[in-house]
């Protein structure tokens, strides 16, 4: 997960748009690439995307807001995703998630005060035979317990 960057240049936005506009169905790859580069989809990119793809700002807003992944603002330096789905619930996932949020004093999608970690729900990581599961940035963790969560948060804060 890239951390948010302060400098967002029109040049870089234009380059990313240009690199993807020739694809069939270019919008999602474009949005992913922008988020990869900047940590979120900057508002400065909206009009250039609309111009490149000949879509309205309303259509673009509709797409960005439809998908859980796309951010309008930067997340914390790390993103902790805790699975809420059934297999994880069968082995205490709900209690684990609740305790973690309480410990951090956050609600879902909240970011810790030091900006280290954003906690998000996720519905299945495909680790259902070693549940409960969580993911910090792109690293998956199985059979998560309080100690493992604690270690992940410590690591994020380091």
């Amino acid at each position: 997960m890239p951390t948010a960057r302060s400098e967002i240049t029109a040049d870089e936005i234009a380059q990313i748009i240009e690199a993807h506009r020739g694809l069939e169905g270019p919008l999602l790859p474009m949005l992913h690439a922008l988020q990869e580069a900047f940590g979120f989809v900057p508002a400065e990119a909206h009009q250039p995307i609309c111009d490149a793809l000949n879509i309205t700002r309303a259509e673009l807003h509709g797409v960005i807001s439809f998908y859980h992944d796309f951010r309008k603002a930067p997340a914390g330096r790390h993103v902790l995703k805790i699975c809420r789905a059934e297999a994880c619930q069968s082995v205490g996932g709900a209690a684990l998630a609740e305790a973690t949020l309480k410990k951090l004093g956050l609600d879902w999608h909240g970011t810790s005060a030091d900006g280290a970690v954003t906690v998000e729900p996720v519905y299945c990581l495909g680790l259902c035979a070693c549940a409960p599961a969580a993911m910090i940035d792109d690293r998956v963790v199985g059979r998560v317990d309080d100690a493992k969560i604690e270690a992940m948060i410590e690591e994020a804060r380091a």
Binding site: E24, G25, L28, P29, L31, L53, V63, F66, H68, D69
Partner: peptide, 22 residues
Amino acid sequence: RVGAGAYVCGEETSLLNSLEGK
């Protein structure tokens, strides 16, 4: 191609819309 966190895109017609960038 990579999805963007919408469960419903596992339904084939919504997947196609998503693939088209909608």
